[in-house]
Every structure is written in structure tokens, then in C-alpha cells.
Write a protein that binds this DNA or RNA. Structure first.
Length: 517
RNA sequence: GAUCCCGUAGCUCAGCUGGCAGAGCAUCUGACUCUUAAUCAGAGGGUCGUAGGUUCGAACCCUACCGGGAUCACCA
């Protein structure tokens, strides 16, 4: 596919051609890196590495660095430029007389551009104006950049021409990462968060496992799936919406603790809080109940906050959130009573519907009591829960995989942690009575036949596993992206997913429409 | 899916009541061996998201569509 080049692209392509004519490979093979920019800035010591204030430069701080040229200030026979590597930026000082004959004037000045990746050898020094820099003695082209980068400038912490266009940043994340260094930091923190959680669970002896992404039946959550087809077996397959039912089969199999950090897929809308593929961490621990699991959640989230921020308190948007244990625990119905003044416990479905109607919540005949409770919670409670709070004991009809409450009729032993007005995790004492589980599945099937596209499917194999006997088990699911949003103070899930789903871009790949095989 | 806002040079943005398409950075030419939003002198660069419509005349007004953002509803 050919396309017309802009003026600046043509200039860069010509420069690449002239590099090749001059015998300079525009795409080098490797470069021995001795330091990153940050290492040099931290290790530089004025006492040991004197500047050029009249005295001859001391050359003992030799460095070899590589990175992308982000600025150029050319002054006749000498130039300054900033090189950016993963750790940050450092200024380099390039002079005609320190490079091979003709290299400075022809190659450096005429054939290189902002955005090119170069390797540089030289020694560190401090300029007259005080900036630690590298005096270049050898320079190699490692990759010629053929497209102009957005030029972002900065002075005294003030940023000029910052690239803020969300679409540009999400579609060309590679550019976003180059020109907005704080974006790299967000994804480093995300990685550290996951590493911390994994270590936390490994330390307790839980086994990280992998279960099928392609599933003949989908289950474990209320959501619409993506559907695909396996050609050789000629069968319909679903991309998983959750890992739950497979992980609990492993508890039946004798693992006492299993977890999986997985991509799940839900064929639903996109929003600031939703991406069709997202990352979930699910954990199941035998011989424990939901009460124990609340303690576990407090601990692991607190550990993440401390690892990332050195503190249990952090600023998220306008709120200061404290993850310090213990978190508040409120039964769902009490939370609703607190906000609305209405006690729903022991009320019939119709009594609840009347209360909801009084509170200006739309209720139709298809809504059961569980759904009404859920609506009231969503409307009057959820957004007001800023500090991490466990909401406990949900209606049984909303929780087909959770165990009945040991003392409260009509409820299950389930909790959600709510933080900054959003659900952070969902957990319960797992239902291990196979006959009760079958009955719950059958209710779901009825809902599905009634048109509920998010109803669960009846999974005979899962029931067979339960019939062999599953120990009492506590289960947990944490939305990793949601937690990453909190931990990195990001307003949108797209800011914590490297390549969020967007509509296809027109004009970049014309083959998209034709390739309908 | 509904509502509102946005789309102008590679990037960030102006563009008044409808009257010749603008600036800074970047790019190109020249000068400059301690600059740092480098500076100085000059130059080039546009399908104003797309398609219609109104008008003597549209970046600007109207309609539809495309893309993005925000809010709402469902879900994590």
C-alpha cells in the first residue's frame, strides 16, 4: 500500500537515503549500553568529575548510552541535544572536532532528525549553566525515524504543546509513551501492582494456574459473551467472561489455593470504566469463608498501596483514600437503610417495590426483590462510598454461585468492596451443595429463556464436579484495571490499558473492509 | 443505545456578525563551539473530518454520516 508522504516525511526519507550513500547504516544492529540517563544524573559527582570551567576536562566518567533524540540546538560547530531513554533524558554535547572528519557537518547536522534513535559514547561533565551532560566522542545511528514526532517542550516544569488528544494517544500509544513520560510510569506501576499481588499469593502457597479462554459454556458471571467457532471440531466456543467455574473444579481436585490473573471478555458497552477485554484476578482458597476473605482483601490491597506509594493513603481525584486496615463492613440492607431510611429486611417483593417507587426508582414487574435491592444500592449508596468499604450479604437471586447465609434468610455470604464509588472486588463463600447449585442454575436458565441475555448457563460438568464434593471455599475476583485506576489516580480505564479498544481508524488500513473471508 | 461537546498545517491552537487560511513549535536555506521552550535572517507547508444544502460568497449557518471525549443506562 502506498501513500503520499508529507513534506517532513519526504525530508526524512531523503536523509535516510543519503545516510546509506554515505555508508552509514540507518538501522544499526546493537549498542552496548553502560548507563541509563538517570544513572548518570545520579552518579555524577562534581568533586570527581570537573566541568570545563577553564580546566581541561577530566574524562574518567566514561559512558555509553542509547536513546531517542528529543531536541536539537545546533550552533555552528557544536550542538546540544537531549537523548531520551527509558529512565529519562540527558543532554548530550556534540562537537565537530570530537567526531570523525566530516561526520558532524554532513551526518549529524544534515541527516539526523528529532526522533532518531542513536547510540553515543563519551564522558559526563557539567555545563557552564549547570546541566549534567555527555560530551560525545562517538555516535552511531541505530534507527532512523521517518515520521515526525509531536514536539513537546518544557521549561521549569511548565510543558508546552503537550499532546493531550485522547484519540491520538490511544491509537498511537507508542507515540504517547515517548512524548508523555508519566504514561510509562503508570504502566510500570501497574506491572508492580500485579507483581506484588502475585508474590503475596505465592508466598501463601497458592498455585497460579491457567484455565481455558475458549469455553464451550460460559459462566461465573452475569454478562454477554463473545462467540467464536472452532473449525476442526465444528463447535461454537465462547471467550471466557470469568474463570470461576474452572478454578473451583481445581479446588475439587485437591488444590487448597489457586489463582489466575486473566483476560476476560464481555460483549458489552465501552465506557470510562469498561473495556470489552479486561484483566481479572480470581482466587479460591479451601476451608475458608467470606469473612476470612475480607481480611485477605484488606491485606493484599494495603500491601499494593505500600509497595507503590510507600503509604496506605493516596490521592485519587479529589479524594484522599486510606487503604489502612481494617475497612468498614456494612450489610447491604443496613447500608440502604442508612441512606434511604427504609429497612428492607423481611419485606416482601411487593413491599420493596412500593418503597422503591416512593424513592422515585422505576420498578417493573420483571424485577425481583434482589434486583430492586440492587437498584436501590446503586442509586443511593454506591457513589457515596469513598473510603474502601465491604458491603456484605446479598440477595440469593443475584448470586447464583454463592453459599446461603448461615443465619440470614434469603441472603448469601457475599461481599463487594466499594472504593471511590466503584466496585473493586466481588467475593463469597462458595456454594458447594450440588443440588442447591443445580436449582440456582435452573433459575438462571428460566431467566435466560425469559430474555435475560446475561443469565448463566447450566453447566453439567461443573455440577458433576461438585457432586464429588468441594470443600468449603472462599472465592474472590478483583478487577485489576479498576484497582490500577485507583492506584495510579487514573480517571479512565483507557489510561491503564495500553491498547484500549477503539473503533477502527479509517485511512490507515484499507484492507480492513476487503478482508472479509 | 440516549444527550451534550469537539474535529483547522506533522504537533499545540487562533480564526470576530458569513467576505483573500493564521500563529508558535517542527520542517527547509543561511549564520553561530556552553545551548536548554537556544538565538538571528529568510522560505515552504492546508481535501478546514466526509458528503450534501442555504448563499453572490461557507472553516463559520443547516442536514446526514464518520471519528473522539464527557455524562446517563447495563456490566467489573
Amino acid at each position: 500500500m502506498s501513500r503520499e508522504f508529507t513534506e517532513q516525511e519526504s525530508v526524512r526519507r531523503e536523509a535516510r537515503a543519503r545516510l546509506e550513500e554515505a555508508g552509514v547504516n540507518p538501522y544499526g544492529y546493537s549498542w552496548e549500553v553502560s548507563h541509563h540517563a538517570k544513572d548518570i544524573l545520579e552518579a555524577f559527582d562534581d568533586a570527581k568529575h570537573q566541568g570545563v570551567d577553564g580546566s581541561a576536562p577530566l574524562e574518567e566518567f566514561k559512558v555509553s548510552i542509547a536513546g531517542r533524540m528529543m531536541s536539537r540546538r545546533i550552533m555552528g560547530k557544536a550542538s546540544f541535544s537531549h537523548l531520551q531513554d527509558e529512565s529519562g533524558r540527558i543532554q548530550i554535547y556534540v562537537t565537530r572536532d570530537d567526531l570523525p572528519e566530516g561526520f558532524y557537518n554532513s551526518v549529524f547536522k544534515k541527516m539526523l532528525d528529532i526522533g532518531d534513535v542513536i547510540g553515543v559514547e563519551g564522558y559526563a561533565f557539567r555545563t557552564r549553566t549547570g546541566e549534567i551532560s555527555v560530551h560525545v566522542q562517538k555516535l552511531e545511528v541505530l534507527s532512523k525515524s521517518l515520521r515526525p514526532f509531536p514536539i513537546v517542550k518544557e521549561q521549569d516544569g511548565q510543558v508546552f504543546n503537550e499532546v493531550t488528544d485522547k484519540e491520538f494517544r490511544y491509537r498511537q500509544r507508542y507515540v504517547d509513551l515517548v512524548v508523555n513520560p508519566e504514561v510509562r510510569e503508570v504502566f510500570r506501576q501497574r506491572a508492580r501492582m500485579i507483581t506484588t499481588m502475585r508474590r503475596f499469593m505465592d508466598d501463601r502457597g497458592y498455585v497460579e494456574v491457567e484455565t481455558p479462554v475458549l469455553q464451550p459454556l460460559y459462566g461465573g458471571a452475569a454478562a454477554r459473551p463473545f462467540t467464536t467457532h472452532h473449525n476442526a471440531l465444528d463447535m461454537k466456543l465462547y471467550l471466557r467472561i470469568a474463570d470461576e467455574l474452572y478454578l473451583k473444579r481445581l479446588i475439587v481436585g485437591g488444590f487448597d489455593g489457586v489463582y489466575e490473573i486473566s483476560k476476560d471478555f464481555r460483549n458489552e458497552g465501552l465506557s470510562r470504566f469498561h473495556n470489552p477485554e479486561f484483566t481479572m484476578m480470581e482466587l479460591y482458597v479451601a476451608y475458608k469463608d467470606y469473612d476470612w476473605m475480607m481480611g485477605f482483601v484488606e491485606e493484599i490491597v494495603e500491601a499494593v498501596a505500600i509497595e507503590l506509594h510507600g503509604s496506605t493513603e493516596l490521592q485519587v481525584g479529589e479524594n484522599t483514600i486510606s487503604f489502612k486496615r481494617p475497612w468498614k463492613r456494612i450489610p447491604l440492607l443496613e447500608a440502604i437503610e442508612e441512606k434511604t431510611g427504609h429497612d428492607l429486611s423481611g419485606k416482601s417483593r411487593d413491599e420493596m417495590a412500593a418503597i422503591a417507587a416512593k424513592l422515585n426508582i422505576e420498578v417493573d414487574d420483571s424485577m425481583g426483590s434482589g434486583k430492586i435491592i440492587d437498584e436501590l444500592f446503586g442509586e443511593f449508596v454506591e457513589a457515596s462510598l469513598i473510603q474502601p468499604t465491604f458491603i456484605t450479604d446479598y440477595p440469593v437471586e443475584l448470586s447464583p454461585l454463592a453459599k446461603r447465609h448461615r443465619s440470614k434468610e434469603g441472603l448469601v455470604e457475599r461481599f463487594e468492596a466499594i472504593c471511590n464509588g466503584k466496585e473493586l472486588c466481588n467475593a463469597f463463600s462458595e456454594l458447594n451443595d450440588p443440588d442447591d447449585q443445580r436449582a440456582r442454575f435452573e433459575e438462571q436458565v428460566v431467566l435466560g429463556l425469559g430474555g435475560d441475555e446475561e443469565a448463566m448457563q447450566l453447566d453439567e460438568d461443573y455440577l458433576r464436579a461438585l457432586e464429588y464434593g468441594m470443600p468449603p471455599t472462599a472465592g474472590l475476583g478483583i478487577g485489576i484495571d479498576r484497582l490500577a485506576m485507583l492506584m495510579t489516580n487514573s480517571a479512565s480505564i483507557r489510561d491503564v490499558i495500553l491498547f484500549p479498544l477503539l473503533r477502527p481508524e479509517t485511512g490507515v488500513d484499507d484492507s480492513v473492509e476487503e478482508s472479509d473471508d
